[in-house]
Design a protein around this nucleic acid. Sequence first.
DNA 1: AGTGTAACCGGACCGTAGTCCACTTTATTC
DNA 2: GAATAAAGTGGACTACGGTCCGGTTACACT
Lengths: 193, 193
Amino acid sequence: MLRLSGNDGERADAARNRRLLLEAAARIVELYGPEKLTMDEVARHAGVGKGTLFRRFGNKTGLIHALLDQSGRDFQAAFMFGPPPLGPGAAPVDRLRAFGEASIRRCDFQGQLLRAAQEGPEALSHPTQRLARQHLGLLLREAGTTGDLELAAYELSAYLNAGLLIHLQEERRMPHERLIAGWHELVERFLPR
Amino acid sequence: MLRLSGNDGERADAARNRRLLLEAAARIVELYGPEKLTMDEVARHAGVGKGTLFRRFGNKTGLIHALLDQSGRDFQAAFMFGPPPLGPGAAPVDRLRAFGEASIRRCDFQGQLLRAAQEGPEALSHPTQRLARQHLGLLLREAGTTGDLELAAYELSAYLNAGLLIHLQEERRMPHERLIAGWHELVERFLPR
DNA sequence: AGTGTAACCGGACCGTAGTCCACTTTATTC
DNA sequence: GAATAAAGTGGACTACGGTCCGGTTACACT
């Protein structure tokens, strides 16, 4: 078989099941919260076998990434091509500040899913994480920061990790504004003196 | 029963089983590596029921913390009471540098266990983590750093997270020296200008 | 020694992530 | 429209972490 005609090389029934599974997963999260998102339940609600679910998304973090895909793409588009201060056009420092603010804001809405997506040792290697670090590194370079920019990008993105932000908000009871101020302060420390 | 005489309020058989379980766990890690450390196997090797294992250590991260306890205590004693530059007596900046170096060195030996111990949402609340952050915050204050020192301590300790260090070493192939240099650079950024 | 009781013990049991593979469906080709 | 091969499917199965609870044991007090 040559698979020339297919839209994405995905068979029609497979595409339908992908849609069913994503809808079921989204519904479960919306109705019962992310902690009730089990692979068995998703498959059951979608009226589909478990094997199908794992074939489509690989594993649970794969499914969660697929759920976050749309908002992730929006976010990426915003900081790469959108209007300033997040997108190009503003000063690098302002873009850095805006990037953190947007990340923290996003965490307010999708924190639990974001945290779940960042579990496991391979999370740091995921394309979206790499892209964010690359972006941070680029902005640092433009801002005139010197030194090991790759490590600097890791350090900055560590602060924006959903697990850390949730801990600070829920365990340490830090208000939103303090986290933002902390980000601004951190960015400041990375600027050339 | 008053439980006055007992050494630690732990019954003799319980103490014996704790020892057996820790020895079994240590042997499994040594012989087969941390990824083979399953609760069933530990209980089986110790010749003890699974319920006993969970009663003693609560959960898997509890067992791992118990395994790391000795080296953890040594480390804590070293940076709180030991000789400079890690312990008191040296300049705060030098103590900060030494703290990171010691953490990175420790990660070289026990990285996999340390990473496993830091999984889960409650890891950041664990006493050893809190103590490390408190120590970092104190050194920053002594070094004259201004701003939100609590957040600053979180940011510094994020760099020393075993999961991140292992990722940088194994995935990004960064040599030991680069990680050390990165730590020194990071500390530098937190010093008053 | 005898006794009461709190602590301990073991292993059956549960929920969840992830694997496996015999069977079915789809799409292409002739 | 029949043959065919690749892709898809579903549910039984495994491994693992963690819970539960009826039975047992060590210890303090008499």
